[in-house]
Simulated assay, not measured.
Amino acid sequence: MKKTHYLAGIVLMSATAAMPAFAADECTLEINSNDAMQFDQKEMSVPASCEEVTLTLHHTGTLAKNVMGHNWVLSTTENMQPIATDGMSAGVDHDYLKADDERVLAHTDVIGGGESSSVTFSTADLKAGDDYSFFCSFPGHVSIMNGKFSITE
Score class of each variant (00 low, 15 high):
residue 3 K to E: 06
residue 4 T to H: 10
residue 5 H to E: 14
residue 5 H to N: 14
residue 6 Y to K: 15
residue 6 Y to T: 15
residue 7 L to F: 15
residue 7 L to K: 12
residue 8 A to M: 09
residue 8 A to I: 10
residue 8 A to C: 15
residue 11 V to A: 15
residue 11 V to R: 06
residue 14 S to A: 14
residue 14 S to F: 13
residue 15 A to R: 04
residue 15 A to P: 00
residue 17 A to V: 13
residue 18 A to G: 09
residue 18 A to F: 09
residue 21 A to L: 15
residue 23 A to G: 14
residue 24 A to R: 12
residue 25 D to N: 13
residue 25 D to Y: 01
residue 26 E to Q: 12
residue 26 E to K: 13
residue 26 E to W: 02
residue 26 E to V: 11
residue 28 T to K: 07
residue 33 S to K: 09
residue 36 A to D: 15
residue 37 M to T: 13
residue 38 Q to A: 10
residue 39 F to K: 01
residue 42 K to E: 06
residue 44 M to L: 15
residue 47 P to F: 01
residue 47 P to H: 00
residue 53 V to A: 04
residue 54 T to S: 05
residue 55 L to F: 00
residue 56 T to K: 10
residue 59 H to G: 06
residue 59 H to Q: 09
residue 60 T to P: 05
residue 60 T to M: 14
residue 61 G to P: 05
residue 61 G to F: 07
residue 62 T to N: 11
residue 63 L to V: 09
residue 64 A to N: 11
residue 65 K to N: 13
residue 65 K to G: 03
residue 67 V to E: 15
residue 68 M to P: 01
residue 69 G to Y: 03
residue 70 H to E: 03
residue 70 H to M: 02
residue 71 N to K: 02
residue 72 W to R: 03
residue 75 S to C: 02
residue 76 T to A: 05
residue 77 T to I: 01
residue 78 E to N: 05
residue 80 M to S: 04
residue 81 Q to R: 11
residue 84 A to L: 06
residue 86 D to W: 06
residue 87 G to R: 02
residue 90 A to F: 01
residue 90 A to W: 02
residue 92 V to T: 12
residue 92 V to L: 14
residue 93 D to Q: 14
residue 94 H to E: 15
residue 94 H to L: 13
residue 95 D to R: 01
residue 96 Y to C: 03
residue 96 Y to P: 08
residue 97 L to M: 12
residue 97 L to K: 09
residue 98 K to S: 07
residue 99 A to D: 15
residue 100 D to M: 12
residue 100 D to V: 08
residue 101 D to G: 07
residue 102 E to C: 01
residue 104 V to W: 03
residue 105 L to R: 11
residue 110 V to S: 13
residue 117 S to A: 10
residue 122 S to D: 12
residue 124 A to N: 09
residue 125 D to Y: 08
residue 125 D to H: 10
residue 127 K to M: 12
residue 131 D to W: 02
residue 132 Y to E: 02
residue 132 Y to V: 00
residue 132 Y to D: 03
residue 134 F to D: 00
residue 134 F to G: 01
residue 134 F to A: 01
residue 135 F to L: 03
residue 135 F to Y: 07
residue 136 C to R: 03
residue 136 C to Q: 04
residue 137 S to Q: 06
residue 138 F to R: 07
residue 138 F to K: 09
residue 138 F to I: 03
residue 140 G to T: 05
residue 140 G to N: 08
residue 140 G to E: 03
residue 140 G to R: 05
residue 140 G to V: 00
residue 141 H to A: 14
residue 141 H to M: 11
residue 141 H to Y: 13
residue 141 H to W: 04
residue 141 H to Q: 12
residue 143 S to Q: 11
residue 143 S to K: 12
residue 144 I to L: 14
residue 144 I to Q: 15
residue 145 M to S: 12
residue 145 M to L: 11
residue 146 N to P: 05
residue 146 N to A: 12
residue 146 N to R: 10
residue 146 N to Q: 15
residue 147 G to H: 08
residue 148 K to G: 03
residue 150 S to F: 07
residue 150 S to R: 09
residue 150 S to N: 08
residue 151 I to Y: 06
residue 152 T to Q: 04
residue 153 E to S: 06
residue 153 E to K: 04
